[in-house]
């Protein structure tokens, strides 16, 4: 494993009964890069994320984060190790305010001890400052008092990203941030993701090819649970197997 690898999966495999959703996936994500995972629907991308984040236990294989094995760690451990994720389907705290959504995620990384809870939530000025900075970052500062469920779909997607950023991760897993967004909101979200490039190491699942090709450093292509190609955007674009996976086999 090279020194600047931040995340490595080694033969990661996941069976759901007779279905092999992920088959021997070995990824190597370098620090400071944006690494995309693309592939047709059902190719195992989200399951791969779930395996990395401990939501699903792998049938075989290992996950290493910053050189440390994290296979099978509980999901709530990972933000403390420096790994945060966004979900494909918006997954926030609907009846909490936008501010509280982010506040909760910022606070999770602090360990104030039992005595910390003698104080009021509003008295943690460092948490407050971080939460407001993240909200400004994703362009939601003006909506911070609104209840999360009242946001537009695009804003909820931005909040989804904000909640992940709030744990100041060293690796950010984004699962289709533009999913279901109208063209205009897609542009906004793309800008947001672009603004994160360089500041965070990102592992991205995305369907919109133009975005993937323009912002990725490396791309892994999945089909039927396997990585069928990996390389720079140009290499992937020219790859026969990739074209076949997307367009179907040519007779």
């Amino acid at each position: 494993m090279s020194a600047d690898t931040i995340l490595r999966t080694d033969g990661l495999t996941c069976d759901f009964g007779a279905l092999r959703a992920v088959n021997h996936v070995s990824l190597d994500v370098k620090g400071g890069t944006l690494h995309s995972v693309i592939g047709p629907n059902g190719s195992g991308k989200t399951t791969l994320f779930n395996l990395i984040c401990g939501e699903v236990r792998p049938s075989a294989g290992r996950v290493y984060f910053e050189g440390r094995e994290v296979t099978g760690r509980a999901p709530h451990d990972l933000p403390h190790l420096g790994l945060a994720r966004c979900f494909q389907r918006t997954n926030v705290f609907p009846k909490l305010s936008v501010y509280e959504n982010v506040w909760a995620a910022v606070f999770a990384r602090r360990t104030p001890g039992v005595l910390g809870c003698v104080r009021r939530a509003g008295e943690f000025s460092d948490v407050d400052a971080d939460a407001r900075r993240v909200l400004a970052d994703v362009g939601l500062a003006a909506r911070s008092e609104a209840r999360a469920e009242t946001l537009s779909h695009g804003q909820q997607r931005a909040l989804e990203v904000a909640v992940a950023l709030a744990s100041s991760p060293r690796l950010l897993l984004l699962d289709e941030p533009t999913q279901g967004l109208a063209p205009e909101a897609t542009v906004q979200m793309t800008k947001l993701v672009q603004s994160l490039v360089g500041r965070y190491t990102i592992l991205l699942i995305e369907h919109k090819m133009r975005i993937v090709m323009s912002i990725s450093d490396r791309i892994s292509v999945m089909a039927f649970g396997e990585v069928i190609a990996e390389g720079t955007p140009d290499e992937v674009r020219d790859n026969r197997d990739v074209q076949r996976a997307y367009l179907g086999a040519r007779r």
Binding site: K95, E100, A121
Partner: peptide
């Protein structure tokens, strides 16, 4: 004081979405 403390926010976050509460780092 309990519901005004961070515990109040954490409890409500768990009520709203336990999966996400775990994903941001709460046991």
């Amino acid at each position: 004081r309990i519901v005004d403390s961070p515990l109040g926010v954490i409890f409500r976050a768990i009520r709203e979405n336990p999966g996400r509460a775990a994903a941001v780092g709460y046991d």
